[in-house]
Design a protein around this nucleic acid. Sequence first.
DNA 1: TCAACGAGACAGAACGTTCTCCCTCGCATG
DNA 2: CATGCGAGGGAGAACGTTCTGTCTCGTTGA
Lengths: 202, 202
Amino acid sequence: MTRTTNATSGKTSEARTRLLNTATRIFYTEGIHSVGIDRVIAEAQVTRATLYRHFSGKEDLVLAYLDQADRMMRGQLADAQAGTGSAVDAVRAVAKAITDGIRSQGFRGCAFLNAVAEYPDPTHPVHQAVLRHREWFLDTVTDLLARIGDTPADADARHLVMLRDGAMAAGCLFDPALIADTFLRGVEGIVQSRMQARTPVD
Amino acid sequence: MTRTTNATSGKTSEARTRLLNTATRIFYTEGIHSVGIDRVIAEAQVTRATLYRHFSGKEDLVLAYLDQADRMMRGQLADAQAGTGSAVDAVRAVAKAITDGIRSQGFRGCAFLNAVAEYPDPTHPVHQAVLRHREWFLDTVTDLLARIGDTPADADARHLVMLRDGAMAAGCLFDPALIADTFLRGVEGIVQSRMQARTPVD
DNA sequence: TCAACGAGACAGAACGTTCTCCCTCGCATG
DNA sequence: CATGCGAGGGAGAACGTTCTGTCTCGTTGA
C-alpha cells in the first residue's frame, strides 16, 4: 500500500494516479496474471522507473488496485443508502446499485472474486485483501437486514450475499438483464420474509 | 481436444492419463496462468516431449482439463438423480451433491468460474467451454424444476443457479458448513414455492 | 518394426526488477 | 534575487528467471 505524495502539496502524484487507473482498467478487464507490467506502463504512459518509484512491485500494484476498488464500493454503498428513509429502502437501494453495476457496459464480474480465483493461496496478501473486503460486505449487509424485522439477520445476510456472488459471477456470462431481474426478485423475497417479522424458526 | 490412443489396444495412454490428472489437480488448486507446464510435467513424471505428443499446447491441456471436469459433473448429477423417485427428491439430491462438494477437503470453488476469471475474452476457446458447460447446467436444472408444479421453471432455475454460483464462489472463502446450509435453505425455498404450484404471476 | 516414452538441449519471447543517465520543475536558503 | 538542491519523471539498457514450444537422440516393449 505505497502512497507517495508530492513533498510540497499534499496531492498524490499524477503519474501514480494514471498508473493506478490504468492498472485498474486492465486488471479488471483482462485479469491479473495474464497482464504484464509492460502493458500497464505503456498504457499509463509512464516509464518503468516511475512504476517502481510508487509501487514496490506488481503485487503492490495489485493490492492498490483492490484497495481502490474496495474504497469505491464502500462509497457506492454509502451513497446508495444515503437519502433512503426506511431500512427496506436502503436494502433495495443497495440491490439496485449492484444490478446497475451488472447492467453497465464493461462489466466483468466482481473484481474481488476474479482476483481471488487467481490467488487461491489463503496466506497470500491479495487473497487476504479479498477476505477482508468480503468480511466488511457481509457485516454491512447483516447490519442492514437487522434493521428489518426482529429476527436474527445472519442467515438472511448470508443468503443475500450468496445471491450477490452468484449474480456478479454470472453477470458477464449470461444475459445481464435476466441476471439483474433474478437477483432483485431474490432480494425482494428476503426483504418480504423479514418484513413479516416472525419469530426465529430455530 | 487431442485424444491419443494406443495403436494396438483401444485404451488411452497411461502417460496421458497421468498428465491430465496432474493438470486437473494443479490447475484446480493453484489456478491456470500461474502454473507452468514444467510443474505439470514434473509432477506427472513425464517429459516435455510426451506432453506435446498428447496435447497441442497448454491451451489444449486446459481444455482437456475442463472437458474432464464437465464429464465428471455430468456423471455426478446423473448419479445423484438416479434412484430418486420424485422430482423434488431429484432436486434435493442434486443440491446435496453440490454441498458435498463444497464441504469436501480441497474444495477450491467452481473449476469453471475460476477458469473463466482467468479467460475473460468471450472469444477464447476456454471461455466458450465454460459457457457451454453453464448452458448445459442451466438447462438441466430447468428441466428438473419443470417437473415440480406447473409454473414456468426458467426464473426458478436461474434463481437456483445463481445460488449455486454464489455458494461455489464463497465456499472456499467462508465457513463451508454455513455456505452449504445457506444454499440448502435457498434451494428448499425454491422447491417449496414450486410445490404450491400456483399459476404464473406474470 | 514401429510407436511410445525418457532425457535433455535449445530457441525465442515475456516476465518482473534494477540500474544509470538526464531533464525539469518547485522551493528553500544564502 | 540568485543559486542550488532534491524529488518526480522520462528513456532505455540490462539483469536473471521463467515461460511455451521444438528439437534430437536413445531406450523400451509389443
